[in-house]
Design a binder for these strands. Structure first.
Length: 641
RNA sequence: GCCGGCUUAGCUCAGAUGGUAGAGCAGCGGUUUUGUAAACCGAAGGUCACGGGUUCGAUUCCUGUAGCCGGCACCA
């Protein structure tokens, strides 16, 4: 007998070998009908699998979040079955869930086409209609390897070989089709339902390694109900409208063109946004004890060799030869330059921590496939700084930085998606001892700063571990923006030193850090976050003074001049157009405030203010409007907090 | 870089099984002086991404290249 405890607190005895379905049936016929899976002591299990032991039990129905995960995974299995029916000889590999859906990677000589996706979807629906029973089997490891090798499924056989010896090999049978899988699964394909859609085709390397074969990945989304699917597709569609590339064009912020792949042409409005953000962050850095510098854009190859960048990233640097036979490289990053500045004269321990900032224009020859709007560029501007400090200052500096980052992100209304700690990569500089120290110090410092980190083995910079602060774009992709990197290596390589209190020469520790990462990327994120409707202080145009008839022209000119003199970014619209037309046009252009001047306002010396997103108006005297708008347009750091 | 897709006017998009293309908006010229999300009229605007091939004829078919889009890999 086993003892099961139900969510309502009740405890009941059941025969050995009882299944989840039996338990559901013992409660009610309708529950048995709705049951898809059970949860035993928190472990999700097949409904028809015997419960080998007692514990806390929960019947999982379609509406449960756990069920959705299984529905998605089973949809991937149905996809794989459909593909193998339609395209014999195609090998299956892996098919995990991702956010909102799943993918499945296939090995097949001939690539799938978009037309194939439609065919595959149709076959998937048939498989759902066939209502194939899904059953779990435990296989012997060697038999399993022999079986999958025997039917030409080399990838599956390879996966089995890599399963740790203490884990059992489970195969799920679904109709005539079998797949190696940990499970759990739904009782039959009918329960998968039809609220799914295959969304995209892509190449993907086996085991994520570009030295391996490239497989064909099919992505799909799946939901518990058609309504959920519809809602999801609608969300995606709406998110795509906020795409910074679309908004950037529509708002005339910037453009990109073939002659400068991965390089931005900032238009007046976009550049205003850039400068406003730069001015803001510069004030924040000033307040936080940074000094700002500017290092050369191009430096001799020898310096990059010394820093180690030439060896690791030489292929991705823009290099030029001079007539006098020197080889120069456009800087891909700012650290060597900053260390040169540090190295002039003698530094004392009293100078530390020295926080050296630069809005550094960097160029990197990124692979063509990596370029993405203004999020991933070949020419970009880092809001970079290097903190030269002693080892015992790492923690305090980390805390200081994290605090600043949180404050800046909150000012800009961005929500942190995650913080990762990227650990030593295979190709790296520095000894393992140094890495041990660097990794543990950075992790401890992050903890002390109150940051919850997720480890990323192998992803660190070549000179040290890094904290990565990730943000999301409109459709949910995440981008590394802020970063803090702990480096014991470059100070050594580039001979940075300071005089300690006892007169000895010491190496400073170098903290590389950025709040935005790249100004361009962060602006891309801001555009998508705000959907172009920037808060007043950031908006490229803050107030549009628009007339109704030409009777208002003179006063409108006066008003615009006065607003401008007060430091606001003002546009004047005296065109011979209807006010409806002007309101619509400036609203679409996301002007935060339209100040309308009609005959009445002109006579009374007033402005009718209309805010973006509301159709009400406030009538104010010009002086009132100036004082209200200027105080409202103060950047967050200059407002009284 | 790799896999797949896309590329037609400034923008958003139609279009022809091969006979050199069209709309709306924007821009330009004019009329309209207008009260809070599109007034009206007119003229103009295109090497149909670029190169090569097939053809009497190619924007359309084949092929190569580039850029972009979606992924993968990369990301100091």
């Amino acid at each position: 007998m086993i003892e099961l405890k139900f969510p309502d607190g009740g405890v009941r005895q059941f025969e050995d070998g009882v299944t989840g379905r039996d338990v559901a049936a013992s409660i009610s016929k309708s529950l048995e009908k709705k049951a898809l899976l059970v949860k035993l002591d928190g472990e999700l299990r097949d409904l028809d699998r015997a419960l080998e032991h007692g514990g806390a039990i929960e019947i999982v129905t379609r509406e449960a979040p756990d069920a959705l995960e299984v529905i998605r995974h089973d949809t991937a299995h149905v996809l794989a079955e459909a593909v193998q029916e339609l395209f014999p000889g195609t090998q299956v590999t892996i098919g995990p869930n991702v956010e909102d859906g799943f993918f499945y990677d296939f090995a097949r000589e001939e690539p799938f086409s978009l037309d194939d996706l439609a065919k595959i979807e149709a076959r998937m629906r048939q498989i759902v209609d066939r209502d194939e029973k899904i059953t779990r089997e435990v296989w012997d490891r060697n038999e399993a390897i022999a079986h999958f090798d025997g039917i030409g499924e080399a990838y599956k056989a390879e996966i089995i070989r890599d399963i740790p010896a203490d884990q059992s090999i489970t195969v799920y049978r679904q109709g005539n089709w079998k797949d190696l899988c940990r499970g759990p699964h739904l009782p039959s394909t009918r329960h998968v339902g039809k609220a799914f859609k295959l969304t995209k085709l892509a190449g993907a390397y086996w085991r994520g390694d570009q030295n391996n074969a490239q497989l064909q990945r099919i992505y799909g989304t799946a939901w518990a109900s058609e309504a959920d699917l519809e809602a999801h597709l609608k969300r995606i569609e709406e998110a795509e409208r906020r795409d910074h590339r679309k908004v950037g064009r529509a708002m005339d912020l910037f453009h990109l063109q073939e002659e400068g792949k991965g390089m931005v042409f900032w238009h007046p409005k976009g550049w205003t946004l850039f400068r406003t953000l730069e001015a803001y962050i510069r004030r924040r850095l000033d307040d936080d004890g940074y000094v700002e510098v500017k290092a050369p854009q191009i430096l001799d190859r020898g310096l990059w060799e010394k820093s180690g960048h030439w060896e690791k990233f030489g292929h991705a640097m823009f290099v030029c030869e001079t007539d006098e036979g020197e080889t120069m490289a456009v800087k891909p990053m700012n650290c060597p330059g900053h260390i040169q500045i540090f190295n002039v004269g003698q530094k004392s321990y009293r100078d530390l921590p020295l926080r050296m900032a630069e809005f550094g224009a960097c160029h990197r020859y990124e692979p063509s496939g990596a370029l993405h709007g203004i999020m991933r560029l070949r020419a970009f501007t880092q809001d970079d700084a290097h903190i030269f400090c002693r080892e015992d200052q790492i923690e305090a500096e980390t805390t200081k930085f994290v605090k600043l980052l949180y404050s800046v992100y909150s000012d800009l209304d961005v929500t942190l998606h995650s913080v990762k700690l990227a650990l030593r990569p295979d190709m790296r500089a520095g000894t393992d001892e140094v890495w041990d120290i660097a990794e543990s110090k950075l992790e401890r410092a992050a903890r002390a700063a109150g940051v919850e980190v997720e480890h990323l083995p192998g992803e660190g910079a070549f000179y040290g571990p890094k904290l990565e602060f990730h943000l999301r774009d409109a459709i949910g992709r995440t981008w590394q923006c802020g970063t803090l990197q702990l480096d014991f290596v470059l100070p050594e390589r580039l001979d940075a030193e300071y005089v300690e209190s006892d007169g000895s020469k010491q190496r400073p520790v170098l903290l590389h850090r950025a709040l935005f990462g790249s100004m361009e990327r962060f602006i891309g994120i801001l555009i998508e976050n705000y959907a172009g409707a920037f808060p007043l202080w950031l908006s490229p145009t803050q107030v549009v003074v628009a007339t109704i008839t030409s009777e208002g022209d003179d006063f409108a000119r006066v008003a615009a001049a006065k607003l401008k003199a007060a430091g606001l970014r003002v546009e004047l619209d005296l065109r011979n157009e209807k006010i409806n037309y002007k309101v619509r046009e400036h609203s679409l252009a996301k002007a935060p405030v339209i100040a309308v001047v009609g005959r009445r306002e002109a006579e009374e010396g007033k402005l009718a203010l209309r805010r973006l997103g509301s159709d009400g108006q406030t009538i104010l005297t010009l002086d009132e409007a100036v004082s209200q708008l200027t105080s409202e347009a103060l950047p967050p750091d200059l407002k009284v907090r």
